[in-house]
């Protein structure tokens, strides 16, 4: 076991992890943060996306030990039913959620884009969301929701 320190959703943690343990395993199994989903487990689908030190990463491709000293935001740190994040609000309004499995990763990619760039172009939205696959929606409503969230943020 190796001891790592990290901040997840603004709370500091000290965890004992195995060297081969992935960040997604530490988040789900040790911290009980089940909002981070494992889709493909090989970095193709983006369902396991979290924000690590201001950058989106696939938590299935990052070892927990590599996250030592990092600040992580998972979907649990973004908003809740009572006060949803503008991206979450827009997803619900537009109907960008169908089965919901890709949604946490989608929301984190969108949030991270808007944190850095409050007025993204359609192309910039497309690039920021290109690492997240959705098998239900056909993407149109997801991209529209991100656009709406960006416009609301501007006001």
């Amino acid at each position: 076991m190796i001891e790592i320190k990290l901040v997840v959703n603004n709370k500091p943690y000290t965890l004992g992890v195995e060297p081969s343990e992935r960040l997604i395993d530490a988040l789900r199994n040790r911290l009980g943060l089940l909002g981070t989903k494992e889709g493909c487990g090989e970095g193709e689908c983006g369902a396991c996306t979290v924000i690590m030190d201001g950058k989106t990463v696939n938590s299935c491709l990052v070892l927990a030990v590599q996250a030592n000293g990092s600040v992580i935001t998972s979907i649990e740190g973004v908003g809740n039913r009572r006060s949803p994040h503008p991206v979450q609000k827009a997803f619900v309004e537009v109907g960008a959620v169908q089965c919901g499995f890709c949604t946490p990763g989608m929301v984190l990619s969108a949030k991270n884009l808007l944190d850095k760039n409050s007025k993204p172009s359609n192309e910039e939205i497309g690039i920021a969301m290109s690492g997240n696959l959705c098998r239900c929606t056909g993407y149109d409503k997801i991209l529209r929701a991100v656009k709406i969230a960006a416009e609301e943020g501007k006001e």
């Binding site: 970095g43 983006g46 989106t56 990463v57 491709l61 990619s109 290109s130 690492g131």
Partner: peptide, 9 residues
Amino acid sequence: MGSPQIRNQ
């Protein structure tokens, strides 16, 4: 290359 997430890592 890859996706934004992969390019970050």
